[in-house]
Design a binder for these strands. Structure first.
Lengths: 210, 210, 210, 210
DNA sequence: TATGAATGAGACTTCATTCAT
DNA sequence: AATGAATGAAGTCTCATTCAT
């Protein structure tokens, strides 16, 4: 497919080549998923021959996993850590949600590809899927801690349920935006999401008020 | 065992063959997505040769679209329509949510495959994706009508936002269950989801109470 | 490919069905040759299912042969037999050539498909090819007789060479028109062809004139 | 026999592989035409797996086009350019015709395959067909120039008609030989062809002589 | 007189991967 | 650090043909 007619040259530069391959892969895999991502397509997009991809990555699975890892790091950098204690719980929760929403708009690859991998069930689970699920489990715990801090009187299983609900809602809203298009105001939806959860938590934390 | 009338026909039963093909496809496509579904795998699972599949369906795209359509109908039948006016808005909303949750547990193929298709972006959009998005748009409007009926004082755009939020949350919770496993109590999560939305709607509908 | 969705009915009418199949086949085979003519394509063009084609014709080979035979008869009818003794040899020869040219423009299928078959060399020779070559051999002899009649003093092998030359030239000019398009004036070219042959024959018949 | 240096390499010799593929293809396509040429057959004949063929050629169309191009070059080399000014126009024309005839006997692939492609009309025109027709158009103009040089008083459209007639006659005679077999003396027929055209041109060039 | 359904073989093409250089 | 060339397996789809009805 690449054929013998291609005659590109480049100074050997391992790091840059690796980046180019990952850039190409994230774009394709984010649109087509695991099976839809062919080495030939990556090769065509990054300009390096397929055999060079195998010099940098053991196999396709390794490549996809590397993409997941790198796009996670990219996304992490896009999440600005909020000022530690900025006012009321509602304000803090809303700000965090807006933060996450903005980061997902800026760096959607991680979640996009991750969700595609997560939904698939193949005989031998891709390493990228495992990585994604682990990262997301870590995130779950981090969020649960924050919730527990903000609402100390909540029982552990309630915190867990609310956290699950928070993450699932974020996923759903993200998918909605991916499917519907850029016109969706993800920040506003995430703020609404945060407010609803906050109110529920507040009510659950202080049942006496009723 | 099946008796002597089973005369090894093997010949000519179009309707049954079509069903067998669709059964096999829904199982594979629901796990592996569009690209991961190979005609050979479908053939192996349903027992008919690949060429017979092409007698019943124009091409792979047509097959996947047919699967989406049939699994949607299956799912629709699984959603029991609730008693028309059963008590308070909260009760009605909660019951509906539980209903949908139960239907998704019983017939998850439609949403599962649909979401996989929805997340993919391929050069030529599969017809199944289009069908899924259309069906879901219809559902969105149906839900919006219900919300508007239950909370007549809500502005139209608020109803729309809440509906979007409701659907997205449902998607996210469904994905959570698909990824995490059968141990997730989808009905409980959907009831929580319904309650949060209801409370938000109630508050927005009567801002004076503040 | 035709699929179960096709629901056409027709009063059973063997003769008409046969004609429709042949009509469709001549069109496709005349454009695509033996290998390029698929039963499915014929079926699509004539509206009858593939299995019906096999009711009328033993196999593909039989179908193509039937097409050759029928298109030959059609062509024969298109060649108006010229008035027996119309003037000088040049006039007669020119008129005959113009006749043939006109018939080839009106009914090109026979020669078109025939030449395609003739050029191909397949392990088991199609019956249609054999038929074509036989018909053309007969034509060769008929023409040779005419030449011998018009120029009685020519040696037999000279007559044969001239006849070969006449037929080959006709083939070449026909191909030229098929390739170049309808703008080519085949009649004029055939008349030129006839004149050149006539002059050559006349000179050979009377070498004394030199 | 070939000596011990033949170390069963089997590895990496792009140029030679390409030649082997083209050799195999020209043989098959020259006998069976476009549709009759299967990649599997080429693979079997050249010893390389089908996938290797696709490394050297984008697709079947590309392969056939390459065959046309190469066989044209081969044929061009087989046409010995005649001594510039060898005697009378008749002698020169006859010599050129004999030359071409000999080249067509020695390297018939170009015209053989080209004519097969030219006669076919498929929805998407093969590139090889385009190439063939272009080459042949160039040849037409080259021949027209020669005719115009030899008979300067001929009108341009007459030169064009005679050239068309010359080429078409050559095609027809070539086809005759291909169909009839090696016993046909193509050189003699081409010389006859040349003489007839020469005489016609001479007469047209000097109408006063009449 | 037809045809719906089926089928094994084979079409073109792409796949992930390897390996000598 | 890279790549040209190769390859077996698998991909989607079409082929000519059959057969029970």
């Amino acid at each position: 497919m690449t054929g013998p007619q291609t005659t590109r040259r480049k100074r050997a530069n391992g790091v840059e080549s690796r980046q180019r391959i990952l850039d190409a892969t994230v774009e394709i895999a984010g649109e087509r998923g695991y099976d839809g991502t062919s080495i030939a397509a990556v090769s065509a997009k990054c300009g390096l021959p397929a055999s060079s991809i195998y010099w940098h990555f053991k196999d396709k699975d390794d490549l996809i996993a590397a993409v997941i890892e790198r796009s996670f790091e990219t996304w992490l950098r896009a999440v600005e850590l909020p000022g530690e204690d900025a006012g009321t719980p509602l304000e803090r929760v809303t700000m965090m949600a807006a933060n996450v929403a903005r980061s997902l708009v800026a760096a959607p690859d991680f979640l996009r590809l991750g969700l595609m991998l997560a939904l698939e069930r193949r005989p031998t689970e891709p390493r990228g899927r495992t990585v994604f699920l682990q990262v997301r489990e870590t995130a779950h715990q981090r969020i649960a801690e924050i919730v527990a801090t903000l609402f100390p009187s909540l029982a552990e299983d309630v915190v867990d349920t609310l956290t699950t609900y928070a993450v699932a809602g974020a996923d759903g809203l993200f998918v909605h935006r991916e499917v519907t298009g850029d016109s969706v105001d993800l920040v506003a939806l995430f703020e609404l999401h945060a407010r609803l959860i906050h109110d529920a938590a507040a009510r659950m934390a202080a049942p006496a008020e009723r």
